[in-house]
Design a protein around this nucleic acid. Structure first.
Length: 263
DNA sequence: ATGGTCGGTGTCCGA
């Protein structure tokens, strides 16, 4: 038996501030699964009740001030999640950046990849090591769960099409070869960038800097991705970025990305 | 014009 579902990802940049946007967006786009990043809250204040009222269950891993990830699932269409795991098995970390859960034989992982600050910094070294661990662990996940979606804020623009000004961003953080080669390595494990399975408008981005009226000028990058495994590729019928909520008052700097697939 | 804007238990740091 197969189910047609919509899966999404959204870096909300504080779930406390963005809860009204999330609820509004889910009302307009009742996706079956969504991975959230940058909750910036501890687990004791996670808005379980408000999401429940909206028809969503949640698994989450928060922390104070920074990071924090969650998976929301529509209770009417999705089974109860099982095998919930937090973070990367091969990379012990205080920072809460990964949460995974199984829905039947479908595995869904929400990730908040390290930003990296700037090329050559200590944070950039942490980013490379973290990505290497993600690659190693993702290979394991795929061997045990052929039906896998890895979604999130990857903090990597895969190629120049994903950058508003490739010359200005060349070799900069989010666009460097060290990062792009690791993204490619992740795909080579048997994952596909669902967005690129379909024809897309030029200059479609998922993140715009708050400064300099970046969104109004569409000075953005596509760094939020919905990756799906080989086993799901032919079952994926659409993938898009919804820039609508970026126009709302007090927006996240990221827009949600959504893919449709049968599992 | 070398800044600019957000969010956070903050008055600087991370993005």
């Amino acid at each position: 038996m197969t189910n047609l579902i919509d899966i999404a990802t959204w870096n909300v940049n504080s779930l406390k501030v963005r809860l009204p946007h999330l609820l509004q967006w889910l009302q307009n786009n009742p996706v079956d699964l969504i991975g959230l990043q940058e909750l910036k809250m501890t687990d004791n204040v996670f808005p379980v009740d408000a999401l429940e009222e909206a028809g969503y269950g949640a698994v989450f891993a928060g922390q104070k001030t920074y990071n924090g990830v969650a998976i929301l699932y529509k209770k009417a269409t999705m089974p109860t999640p099982s095998d919930v795991t937090v973070n990367l098995p091969s990379f012990p970390d205080e920072q809460k950046r990964v949460i995974g859960a199984s829905f039947g034989d479908f595995r869904f992982v929400s990730a908040y990849v390290v930003n990296g600050s700037e090329v050559g910094s200590d944070k950039f070294e942490y980013k490379k090591a973290w990505l290497d661990a993600l690659i190693a662990d993702c290979a394991q996940w795929l061997s045990s769960n052929p039906k896998l979606a890895l979604v999130g804020d990857f903090n990597i623009a895969p190629d120049d099409r994903d950058v508003h000004d490739p010359a200005a961003w060349k070799d900069q953080v989010l666009c460097s070869e060290d990062e792009r080669s690791r993204f490619e390595k992740l795909l080579s494990l048997g994952l596909h960038d669902s967005f690129r399975l379909f024809e897309q408008a030029d200059k479609t981005f998922s993140w715009w800097d708050y400064r300099q009226r970046g969104f109004q000028k569409n000075r953005g990058l596509r760094i939020d991705h919905v990756l799906i495994s080989d086993a799901l590729k032919s079952n994926c019928t659409a993938s898009k970025i919804d820039r609508t909520p970026r126009k709302w008052e007090k927006p996240s700097d990221h827009a949600p990305a959504v893919a449709t697939l049968s599992i």
